[in-house]
Structures are given as C-alpha cells and as structure tokens.
Amino acid sequence: MTTPTRHARTEQLLGRDGLDRLREAHVTICGLGAVGSFAAEALARAGVGKLTLVDYDVVSESNINRQLYALSSTVGMKKSAVAEARIKDINPECEVTVFDCFINEETTDTILDRPMDVVVDAIDSLSSKVFLIINAKERNIPIVASMGAAGKLDANLITSGDISETRICPLAKSVRRRLHKKGVFDGVRCVYSTEPARKNPSTTGEEPTDDGQRIAPVLGSISYLTAIFGLKAAGEAIGVILDGQSA
C-alpha cells in the first residue's frame, strides 16, 4: 500500500512498521479543552487510525485564548463536534468515535469497555480524573494523565514521569491522595509542571468548578503552556503505541 503524502514525513521518521502501528492504534482522549485539543491534533496528524473523543462541553469565548477548537466562528458549538470535523479534515481515514458526556463512574465504564491502546486524560475535574485512572488501571489500559497546566508560564518546567514522582503540582497531590485510598501508588504516566501556580484573582466573573469532591479555583492560563502539555501527552501516548514505553 502506498503511503499518502500526508503521512510521508512520519514514515520517513518512524519507518513503515512504526507508521502501521499508529494506523492500527486506538487512543481515547478524555477532555477536549486547552490540553486535550492539542493532544488530539497531534495524534490525528501523526496518523493514529482510531480516536475516541470524550467531552460534554461547548466552546465559550473565554476558551479562545488557549483552546485549539475555540474560534469566533465556533462559540456555542459542541467541542466534540468541532474536534471530529477537524480530525476528519486532517486525516479522512481516521475512525472517530464521539462520547458527548461527562466523565463519571457510569460513563467511564461505557467509554473504556472497548479495546484500546492508551487513554489520554485531559480532564480538569478531580473526581472524574480519578474515576478514569482507576478504571483504566483495572482494565490494564495504559493512561497518560495531564496534571495542572493553569497558572503556569515557564515551559522549561514541564516534565513527565510516574504519578509517584510528581511534586509541587497541587492537582497531582490531590490525585495521588485519592489514588492511594484505592490502593494505587504508581503505574500512571503524568505530564506535570514543577512551577508553583500563580493564583491571581479572576476578573471574568467565572465561577469556580465544583465536581462534588473539590472546588477548583479559576486560574489564569496562556496558549503555549497548555498546548505544550497536550503535545507532550500525545508524545507519551505515541511512545506507548510504538514500543510500549512512554516517549
């Protein structure tokens, strides 16, 4: 089979076997905001053959400063619908499945109850993030989890490692605490920053996020920082696909 020109540079880098592994891979991306939108973009452009997209939210004007799918023309549209259309435009051969729902215990079971190679967790909610990680671990599905990207500016302090290695990040600390109660201490690949978050007061009137377990304050964020989190998460996922290890 001839490689389409759109994938030629990827094949040049990874070889035909590597490209075929990406074509045959299935990645589920949970959360299509500032981090998840860039993760989905990178995976689609890399030639991943199956992508499952999970997000219940719509694009808002306040998303435009950092989210790939947020444009003046897409405000009010479902993020999952915008993402699906963009991915099909990038790679028409990509098989896209959409779950327009919130991540909780019930929906997580449904989402993960299919063969897949890796899950990318780009969720803000602590309880949803923990539900997803626990369910993925129970099914032996590799997961790459994004920790807190808001309130940061220094791209040089973004790193990756096992959940047991994370430090400074308050979200990672909360996730670790919740996972420990479930008997999980390691085996979760994370993208995180060692930069303390800047907690400047919100001037937009946005309300803090309450997921029933934790009230998350509204933190400022900037385009390049959250994008790097998403791209790095995609790189980790591709590493799992190519050789069973994170990139």
Rank of each mutant, 00 (worst) to 15 (best):
T2R: 14
P4T: 08
T5G: 05
R6S: 15
H7A: 09
T10S: 14
T10E: 09
E11N: 10
L14R: 09
G15M: 05
L22Y: 07
R23C: 12
V27N: 11
C30T: 13
C30M: 11
C30K: 09
V35P: 03
S37A: 13
A39W: 03
A42F: 07
R45Y: 08
G49Y: 00
K50A: 09
T52D: 09
N63I: 06
Q67F: 03
Q67K: 02
K78S: 12
A81L: 10
A81W: 06
V82Q: 07
D89C: 09
I90M: 14
N91H: 11
P92E: 00
C94G: 12
V98Q: 02
F99C: 04
C101F: 06
F102C: 01
N104G: 07
D113S: 13
D113P: 04
R114N: 12
R114T: 14
A122C: 11
S125C: 07
S125V: 08
S127Q: 12
S127W: 14
L132G: 10
I133C: 09
I134C: 12
N135I: 01
A136P: 02
A136N: 03
R139F: 10
P142R: 03
M147G: 06
D154K: 04
A155V: 15
T159P: 05
S160E: 09
S160A: 13
G161I: 00
G161N: 01
I163A: 06
V175E: 02
V175C: 04
F185V: 07
R189V: 13
P196H: 10
P201H: 07
S202K: 02
S202Q: 02
D211F: 13
P217H: 04
G220W: 00
S221V: 02
S223K: 13
Y224S: 14
Y224D: 06
A227M: 15
A233R: 09
I241H: 06
I241A: 05
L242S: 03
S246V: 11
A247V: 10
A247W: 10
A247K: 14
A247C: 13
